[in-house]
């Protein structure tokens, strides 16, 4: 249900952009107004969400410890999985954010004849990493449309991406990887019964959207071969706050741009915010140095607890009879 709804939504978005350009000639709306609105929503929304999380304090230091603690000098500490320093916690975060360390641990439990076994299961890790790395690379490559002259790192990444050196224009592998990885993530949600059970429209929608973005991108580059010079005129216009609509741009570009705008505007309101949130996760970004440095809770407040005096008052006679020392005879 959630999947169908999300699929139809994305199709409608595509049709909307198509109709808007073809039937209503809304080039300025789809080429200028919407992208500006989207980027503004993205930036403000992202910052707002990050600030909102940041305003909730971290009252306790609660890292999930995944290795030996720092203790006796001869016991080998796992300085990354159970960090006791800021450096250790930083390395842990880097491994988490760039290499998906925790997903790499993934196992699959199987029950056979009453026996549970745990097999290594790296597909989710591989699929997610492929998805995110290619997404990032593609976004980075797109900087060529927004910068003049194009900086050398962008050229370099593009050359790397086209290492297969086939086709004209050169086949860039990340586009296909992104599409395949997104399809893999989608298929998981369709085929694995437990994953299907937990999936919401909010899980399908971004996947369909990204699949559509990647597809229109591939279509533009390799099949419809749209006029990149005109596209760059438009994008440079946006960046220089001097927007203009060149003549010769195919409708597919407006569809692509519209879908990206939707993704950007949708981002801050959705689970996609995990991109920013992961950095704030208190079970990962803190070091386990509680026994060395006292953690301060900003809202720590005094509580009424039972005192020794109250305790002795209740049990004094019994304590004296048992020969347990008391404060007041």
């Amino acid at each position: 249900m959630g999947a169908l709804f999300s699929f139809v939504m994305v199709i409608l978005l595509v049709l909307l952009a198509y109709a808007g350009i073809k039937a209503a000639n809304l080039q300025i709306f789809f080429g200028v107004v919407i992208p500006y609105a989207a980027i503004l929503t993205f930036l403000l929304g992202f910052v707002y969400r990050m600030l909102k999380w940041s305003t909730s304090p971290v009252p306790f230091r609660i890292p999930t410890t995944c290795g030996q603690q720092k203790s006796l000098p001869w016991v080998k500490q796992n300085k990354i999985e159970n960090p006791s320093t800021a450096l250790g916690a930083t390395v842990r975060m880097i491994l988490e954010v760039f290499l998906f360390r925790s997903l790499f641990r993934n196992t699959k439990a199987e029950l056979r004849d009453g026996r549970l076994g745990y097999g290594s299961s790296k597909w989710l890790w591989l699929g997610s990493l492929a998805f995110h790395v290619s997404f990032f690379t593609i976004s980075f490559r797109h900087l060529r449309l927004f910068l003049q002259p194009v900086p050398s790192p962008v050229h370099f990444v593009e050359t790397l991406d086209g290492f297969l050196q086939i086709g004209a224009p050169t086949f860039l592998i990340t586009g296909s990887i992104l599409l395949l990885a997104a399809l893999f993530l989608l298929l998981r949600r369709f085929l694995l019964p437990t994953i299907r059970y937990i999936s919401l429209p909010a899980d399908y929608f971004p996947l369909f959207l990204i699949i559509a973005i990647a597809s229109t991108g591939i279509l533009m580059r390799y099949f419809l071969k749209i006029d990149v010079v005109s596209v760059k005129e438009l994008t440079m216009g946006l960046v220089s706050l001097n927007p203009m609509i060149p003549e010769k741009i195919d409708v597919i570009f407006y569809i692509h741009l519209f879908l990206i705008s939707v993704l950007l505007a949708y981002f801050p309101f959705s689970k996609l915010m995990h991109m920013g949130g992961v950095f704030l996760s208190p079970t990962r970004n803190l070091s386990n140095n509680n026994r060395m440095v006292r953690h301060i809770n900003p809202w720590n407040y005094p509580v009424k607890a039972r005192t020794y005096e109250e305790y002795e008052d209740e049990f004094r006679e019994k304590m004296k009879n048992a020969g347990i020392p008391v404060e007041k005879e």
């Binding site: 997903l103 989710l124 994953i195 999936s199 689970k271 995990h274 949130g277 704030l280």
Partner: peptide, 12 residues
């Protein structure tokens, strides 16, 4: 607050 927001339901 964070754990209410950032789950992507990957199922790991």
């Amino acid at each position: 607050r964070l754990f209410m927001d950032i789950c992507v339901r990957c199922g790991a």
